[in-house]
């Protein structure tokens, strides 16, 4: 037995990945398989799952219900997608300049700045999102501050009706996922040799041309990693929309959660999560193919 292990590299390799295989098998493959199977099942009146084969759950998601056309679920899907795109775009636009600033700061200040980026993550996620309720609600920090300023200047002031709303959800998600964009973008910007900026300037490129031709292409691995790290969790989130959307803003994540916990309809919830998984997978694969993840990382 030991002799075999000592000589056979394949067995050694297998032994090394065995723990990971077990974890993935038990915690990923098995539940995923169960979800897929359940998504084709039905429920009885008591909420028990009856294993059969029906595409009914998927038709219902697309709007074909027993009582006729209803685009409720399609709207939820589209809303989730739109919100995920908005969040990712805004996070990228906010994170990139900040990451650039940190990457070009003196070595000693860089660590401090990165530390500041990470500090919020020490507080529990739910607490931080609740803090945004305090800030955004009609009598909250934002409105009282703006109201006081308006009063001082003598302008008429109408409190902003931000909470609960979809804008509040957007603000909360941008806030939550900013560090997950800053860090990978920073990492790839920091790896760019400063001499390359000088080489571009030496070859008659101005600041804008240098950015488009040198900085941005070389930071693409970080941008790609950051967008995936933002987009994928955002499209499936339910906590932020629950807290800041106040039951008004229902996303796919909320739909899945409610089908399992409130409506006691696991087959329909499973179908929704499989559709979500499919959308995420297709978009991510398209995105990484389009922008050539492998090659960029290999070259960087």
């Amino acid at each position: 037995m030991f002799q075999l292990l000592r000589e056979n590299r394949r067995w050694q390799g297998f032994l090394l990945i065995l723990p990971a295989l077990l974890v993935l098998g038990v915690l990923l493959v098995l539940p995923l398989g169960l979800t897929i199977v359940t998504s084709f099942a039905q429920r009885d009146v008591d909420g028990n799952v009856i294993y059969s084969f029906t595409l009914g759950n998927y038709w219902r998601l697309l709007g074909f219900t027993a009582t006729g056309w209803d685009d409720l679920y399609l709207k939820i899907l589209l809303r989730s997608l739109a919100l995920a795109f908005q969040t990712t775009t805004i996070v990228l636009l906010l994170a990139y300049p900040l990451a650039y600033f940190i990457a070009r700061a003196p070595q000693r200040r860089r660590n401090l700045l990165l530390f500041l980026v990470l500090v919020p993550l020490w507080t529990n996620f739910v607490i931080r999102i609740y803090a945004w309720v305090m800030i955004l609600r009609s009598q909250g920090v934002l409105n009282t501050t703006l109201g006081a300023v308006a009063g001082l200047v003598g302008l008429p002031w109408q409190p902003l009706d931000l909470y609960p709303s979809q804008s509040a959800v957007l603000i909360g998600m941008v806030y939550e996922f900013l560090p997950f964009m800053i860090l990978p973008v920073y990492t790839s910007l920091e790896k760019i040799e400063p001499a390359l900026y000088e080489a571009a300037a030496d070859l008659h490129a101005n600041a804008l041309q240098t950015f488009w031709r040198v900085t941005l292409p070389l930071s693409m691995p970080g941008v790609i990693a950051g967008t995936i790290l933002t987009f994928v969790p955002v499209i499936g989130t339910f906590v932020v929309s629950d807290i800041l959307g106040g039951r008004q803003v229902i996303l796919v994540g909320n739909l899945v959660q409610r089908q399992f916990l409130d409506a006691r309809d696991p087959p329909f919830g499973s179908a929704a999560s499989i559709v979500l998984l499919g959308i995420t997978l297709v978009l991510t694969l398209y995105y990484t193919r389009r922008f050539g993840l492998g090659e960029e990382i290999a070259a960087g």
């Binding site: 001499a195 390359l196 080489a199 571009a200 030496d202 070859l203 040198v214 292409p217 070389l218 960087g300």
Partner: peptide, 14 residues
């Protein structure tokens, strides 16, 4: 109107 050959060449890797 000058160009530079850098110490570690600074060729654009991408």
């Amino acid at each position: 109107p000058v160009n530079t050959v850098f110490q570690n060449y600074a060729l654009f890797p991408h």
